[in-house]
Design a protein around this nucleic acid. Structure first.
Lengths: 131, 131
DNA sequence: GTCGATAGATGCAGATTACACATAGCTGCA
DNA sequence: TGCAGCTATGTGTAATCTGCATCTATCGAC
């Protein structure tokens, strides 16, 4: 028995995973103010209450963010254990993050409006239609 | 021949476009409370202050949402002009949308925390000029 | 008949991603 | 010494997704 209340549907749909712009911007956010490396970021994401993310995707996303100029990296061998690729947020990354917040605010306000703009007395959309 | 004599930028970065889960959930939100068809939704998105979306992607996304059971559709031939495929939010879509709002709130709080947990005026990581 | 707006859809090349697996450094421990 | 396990970073691959161009079709205006 799974401890997690997994919906008992037999849909073969893959578990939702954090990816795309939400993953990219979460990584940028975690890098705001201090540096970090991939494994560390991957763990932070896992504890963040967001959908799980694939670590391979995290590493690839970080490389892509670097290619885009939003982060920069260097090898850190100052600690014990395997070398770590330390990432820092760049100015461009910081600007992108700020711009993203604006987009996000807009986006969220759209969702909120949709949820709250129910006309009084209007019956809930009778989405029976299937006919 | 390039009309612009500016060769330095050979990165033809495509304009950011609304896609993925942000597109899906925006569509679901627009369907909350009333029905709509693809062309209409595409126009609403264009006026919403979000990044532009490709209409082909909108149509494909709607079909996929239907496949996932989050919307249902039928042909509407009651009006003049080309037939419209009218979409309705299903119960499952409504639930998904609600769940998404929670994820989004979490996500946004992460970004906000990152932006505010620093002394204002503290310099960004000094990785400037790194391009 | 042609043009433009409406309405929906597809072909394709390139990008993205989930999943599995690979590589390597270090620690503990028998 | 051997080896399991954790840390840390990746890659191979098939499936999926996406941007852009293009296509079909209806209808009203001219």
């Amino acid at each position: 028995m799974p401890a997690t209340p997994k919906p008992a549907d037999d849909s073969p749909e893959p578990k939702p995973r954090l990816h795309g712009e939400m993953l990219s911007t979460s990584l940028l956010a975690f890098l705001k103010g201090w540096n970090a490396y991939g494994y560390q970021l991957s763990q932070k994401l896992a504890q963040a209450g967001l959908p799980e993310s694939d670590s391979g995707t995290v590493y690839r996303t970080l490389r892509q963010l670097e290619k885009s100029g939003f982060v920069s990296s260097f090898w850190d061998t100052s600690e014990n254990g395997p070398a770590r690729r330390m990432y820092s947020l760049t100015k461009a990354g910081d600007l992108f993050l700020s711009g993203w917040i604006d987009v996000l605010q807009n986006y969220q306000s759209i969702l909120q409006k949709a949820l709250t703009s129910l006309d009084p007395g209007s019956a809930t959309a009778d989405v029976d239609a299937a006919s």
